[in-house]
C-alpha cells in the first residue's frame, strides 16, 4: 500500500476536515526514507493530543510516528495508560488492548496478518507503559518473546503509574517516593532489557528520547529486525514531569541528566548475530541507494 491508495472521493473533498486533507496531501505515507526531519515540513501522523504540556511522551510519540518505516501497513497495539489518550489522534491503524495483554493481542494480530496478506509486509508495534509491560502484562510480554513472535515491543518507561496519580511500578527506581507510594520503593528497578535479551529478543535498546535521530535509528532497526528475524524490545525513558515534580520545560533536561554514562538510562544496546548481519545488509543497501541518488542528482544538475 502507498499514499496513492489513500484518496478522498472528489465529490466530497470539500467537506472533509482539513486535517484529513492534509494527511492525503502532505503526510509521509509511502516515503522510503521518512524520519524525524520530516516534522515541520509534512503532515504528522499525530493530531492534537491530550497529554500534559511538555510531556516527553508526546515527543516520543512524534518521533516514533515519524520514523516508522511502513506506517500505512503498520498496526500499533496500545494498552491502558497515558498512551491510550493519544492513540485516538494517531493516523496509523491501532488497537487498544486490555491492560497488560498487549503482547498477546499483537501475537495473534501478527499471525493473522501474515495469513491474510501473505505477500505484503505488515508490521506490528506494541506501545505500552511500564505498568502494562512489566507489571500487569509481564507474563504476556515474556511469553511473546519466548515464542519468538515477530513484532516490536516499545515500553514508555516513566517509572510509575502516571495517569492514576503516581503508584509504584516495577520499573520505578529503588528508594523513589511518589505521591501514592509514600514509603519509597524498596526494591531495584526491574532489569527488563537484560531479561529481554535472555528471553530471546534480537534487538534491545534502553535509552531516553532526548535525541530524535537516535530514536529514529532504534525504531527503524527494531521494526526491520522484528519483521525479518524475531522479537525486539525498546525501553524509552519518558519521564512524567508532573509526578517527579518538574515543570513543563524540564522534561528534556531530565532525560539528558538520566542518560549520562553512570545513570540508569545510559544508552544500552544488544543485537543478536543474525540481527547484526541483517542491519549490516540494510545499511549497505541504504548506502548504495543514497550514492545512486547522489549520482543521479549530479547528472541532472550537470
Amino acid at each position: 500500500m502507498s499514499k496513492e491508495r489513500i484518496q478522498i472521493s472528489e465529490a466530497l473533498y470539500d467537506i472533509m476536515p482539513s486535517d484529513y486533507q492534509d494527511l492525503v496531501k502532505s503526510a509521509t505515507y509511502g516515503k522510503e526514507d521518512r524520519g524525524w526531519k520530516d516534522i515541520g515540513t509534512s503532515k504528522e501522523l499525530i493530531e492534537q493530543h491530550s497529554l500534559c504540556a511538555g510531556c516527553p511522551e508526546s515527543m516520543a510519540f512524534r518521533y516514533i510516528l515519524a520514523s516508522l518505516p511502513n506506517p500505512e501497513d503498520t498496526v500499533m497495539v496500545g494498552s491502558t495508560g497515558c498512551t491510550s489518550l493519544v492513540f485516538p489522534m494517531v493516523a496509523v491503524h491501532n488497537i487498544h488492548s486490555l491492560f497488560g495483554n498487549q503482547n498477546a493481542i499483537a501475537s495473534g494480530l501478527k499471525r493473522a496478518l501474515s495469513v491474510r496478506f501473505p505477500g505484503r509486509v505488515k508490521d506490528v508495534v506494541v506501545l505500552a507503559g511500564d505498568g502494562a509491560t512489566v507489571d500487569i502484562g509481564l507474563d504476556m510480554t515474556l511469553q511473546a518473546w519466548f515464542r519468538q513472535e515477530k513484532f516490536t515491543t516499545i515500553c514508555f518507561d516513566n517509572e510509575l503509574y502516571a495517569n492514576t496519580g503516581g503508584q509504584e511500578s516495577g520499573l520505578m527506581q529503588k528508594g523513589f517516593v511518589a505521591k501514592m507510594a509514600p514509603v519509597g520503593k524498596l526494591f531495584d528497578k526491574v532489569r527488563l532489557p537484560e531479561i529481554a535479551r535472555e528471553s530471546g529478543c534480537h534487538y534491545v535498546v534502553n535509552c531516553t528520547v532526548s535525541k530524535p535521530s537516535l530514536v529514529e535509528k532504534v525504531i527503524r532497526n527494531a521494526v526491520h529486525v522484528a519483521r525479518e528475524i524475531g522479537p525486539t524490545y525498546l525501553q524509552l525513558y519518558t519521564p512524567c514531569i508532573l509526578e517527579i515534580g518538574k515543570n513543563s520545560m524540564e522534561g528534556l533536561q531530565e532525560m539528558r541528566d538520566s542518560e549520562k554514562p553512570t545513570e540508569r538510562f545510559a544508552y544500552k544496546e544488544y543485537i543478536s548475530e543474525p540481527a547484526k548481519q541483517l542491519l549490516a545488509e540494510l545499511a549497505a543497501k541504504d548506502k548504495e541507494r543514497k550514492a545512486a541518488a547522489k549520482q543521479l542528482a549530479g547528472q541532472a544538475s550537470a
Partner: peptide, 22 residues
C-alpha cells in the same frame, strides 16, 4: 452524514456513490 465507505475513494463504486450523495 456520509461515512468512510463513500468519503474515501476506495474504488470506482465508492467514488460514484459519493457523487450521488453530493
Amino acid at each position: 452524514f456520509p461515512g468512510p465507505l463513500v468519503l474515501w475513494a476506495w474504488n470506482e463504486k465508492a467514488a460514484k456513490k459519493a457523487t450521488a450523495v453530493r
